[in-house]
Design a binder for these strands. Structure first.
Lengths: 236, 236
DNA sequence: CGTGGGATTGAGGCTGCTCAAATTTGGTGG
DNA sequence: CCACCAAATTTGAGCAGCCTCAATCCCACG
C-alpha cells in the first residue's frame, strides 16, 4: 500500500536540484544550502498515493520536486473540492495547529523533499531572508486562492473550463517548458472537482470546444487551436 | 467623495490599541511598539467608501482597527465575488508586485492603521518574530480561503447560508463579544456575493430558515433560535 | 481479442437564476 | 409625529444551466 522509497539525505543534491531557483531554497546561499540539505530527504510516491491527509497531525513540510499532486478537501458525505494542483517548486506547509488543512495525492509519480517540522522550524527561525521568501510564496498562494474563489463563485461552466485550460498552460509555461500541447495529467473527475462542476459537464464543455475546432482533445492533454477564442471564453 | 480624516501618528496610542493582542503588532515588545507606532497613522473611512482598489498600485499596508470591510474582486462585466470580510485585527497586505489583488470597502464606519510600504518593509525586514507573526496570519488566511473554496464549489444554497451564519458568529465570538443575536452589518447583496448566490436566493433561504423557527431575522442581524439545526444544515 | 476503467453522450429533472412586482425599512422634511 | 420617497428586502412565476442517472464508447492493457 505504501511502497515509499526514501533516498538518503540529499545535501549533495541540493546544488543541482531541479527546483533550486523557484522553491523556498532560492533564498539560501551556498553554505546555508548545505546545512539545509541535511534536513531534507527525498521521498518518492507512486501514482494515486496519498502524501498526507487533512486530518493527520503531520510532522513534515514538503517541497515538491517532480510530478503533480492534487490538493483537496472532503466533506463528510464525500463531496470533494480540489483546492489546487501542486507543481515542482511548490511548498506545502502545515498551519499553527500542526495540520495541513487539506490532503494531497500524487498524480503520477512524485518526488518530494520532506522536512521534519522541528529542525525545519529551527532552521528558518532566525533567517529573515528565508522567512521573507516563505512569506512571498504564501502571498502568491493567497492571491491564487482568491482568483479561484471568483471562478468558483461567479463563473459559468464554459468560463471555468476555459480559464482552467489557460491557467494550467500558464503555470506549465512558467515552469520553463515549451508547449505545443497542454498535458493534463489529472483526470476529468479531478478537473471537475477543481472547478466545482460534475465530470459530465466538464466532458461536455470540452467537446463543445472541440466541435468548432477551438481545441483539440488528445490523449493525456489538449491543444489550443484557437487560444484567442479560449481567452475570450474565459472572460478575463 | 473622500472625506477621510487623518489623525496624527499614533505611537502613543498603540499601547492601548483595541487590536493590540490579535494584530500583527502582538509580536512586538514595548520598545519596538513605540518605533512601530511612528510608522502608522490612523485613518477613518465612512460607510461605503473604498479603502483601496484592486487595480491600484498601492503604497500601504493596513491594519483594521474598528469596523468591517468587504474585500472583493470584480469581473469585467461587473460580477462581483466577495473574497472575505475583514474584522478588527485583520491585516491587509499587498503582494510582490505592489498591488492588493482585491478591493476593499468600508461597511459602516471604519478605522484603519495605515503603514507606508517602504518604512514598513524596512521595519519588518530583520525582525524574525514579526515575520513569523505575519506568516502565521497568512497561513490562517490561506486556510480560510480553502475552506471558502469548498463552500463555493461544493455546497448547496442552504448549506452556504447556514455555514455563513455559523462562521460569522464564530469570528465575532472570537473577537471577544458575547452575542445574543448575530449582527450582520453587510447587506444581502454582500452576503450573496460572498456565497456565490443571488440576492433573491439568500433572502429566500433566510426566510425558509425563519419559517420553522430555526432563526429569527431582526433588524441588522439574526439570532439562532436553534443552533443545532443550523449546524446540521451546514453539513460541515 | 476480450476486459475494464475512464470518458463521452443522452434524456430528463431540480436547484438556483432571471425578471418583475410587492413590501418593508430608513431617512427626510413638513 | 407623520407623510413621503428611495433603497433594501422579500415574494412570485417561469426558465435555464447544470446535475442525475444511465447507456455507450474508447482505449490501454493483460
Amino acid at each position: 500500500m505504501k511502497p515509499v522509497v526514501t533516498i538518503e539525505p540529499n545535501w549533495q543534491l541540493c546544488s543541482d536540484c531541479a527546483v533550486r531557483a523557484s522553491a523556498v531554497c532560492s533564498s539560501l546561499d551556498a553554505a546555508e544550502l548545505r546545512e539545509f540539505g541535511h534536513l531534507g530527504r527525498r521521498v518518492h510516491f507512486s501514482s494515486g498515493q496519498t502524501v498526507f491527509s487533512e486530518e493527520d497531525i503531520t510532522t513534515s513540510f514538503y517541497n515538491l520536486l517532480e510530478g503533480v499532486m492534487r490538493l483537496y478537501k472532503l466533506l463528510p458525505d464525500g463531496r470533494r473540492q480540489i483546492v489546487g494542483f501542486a507543481l515542482p517548486g511548490d511548498f506545502l506547509r502545515m498551519n499553527i495547529s500542526g495540520r495541513h488543512n487539506f490532503s494531497a495525492d500524487a498524480i503520477g509519480a512524485v518526488t518530494v523533499c520532506q522536512f521534519a517540522k522541528s529542525p525545519f522550524g529551527r532552521f528558518i527561525e532566525d533567517r529573515p531572508h528565508l522567512l521573507r521568501r516563505i512569506n512571498e510564496l504564501a502571498i502568491r498562494e493567497l492571491s491564487q486562492a482568491r482568483d479561484h474563489m471568483v471562478l468558483l463563485g461567479r463563473r459559468s461552466a464554459d468560463e471555468k473550463v476555459a480559464a482552467f485550460l489557460l491557467g494550467w498552460r500558464e503555470r506549465l509555461v512558467s515552469l520553463k517548458r515549451a508547449l505545443d500541447t497542454i498535458p493534463l495529467p489529472m483526470n476529468r473527475q479531478d478537473i471537475a472537482d477543481y472547478l466545482g462542476l460534475t465530470i459530465e459537464t466538464v466532458s461536455r464543455t470540452l467537446t463543445k470546444l472541440e466541435r468548432p475546432g477551438v481545441i483539440e482533445i488528445i490523449h493525456g492533454g489538449i491543444s489550443l487551436l484557437d487560444p484567442a477564442k479560449v481567452e475570450a471564453l474565459a472572460a478575463a
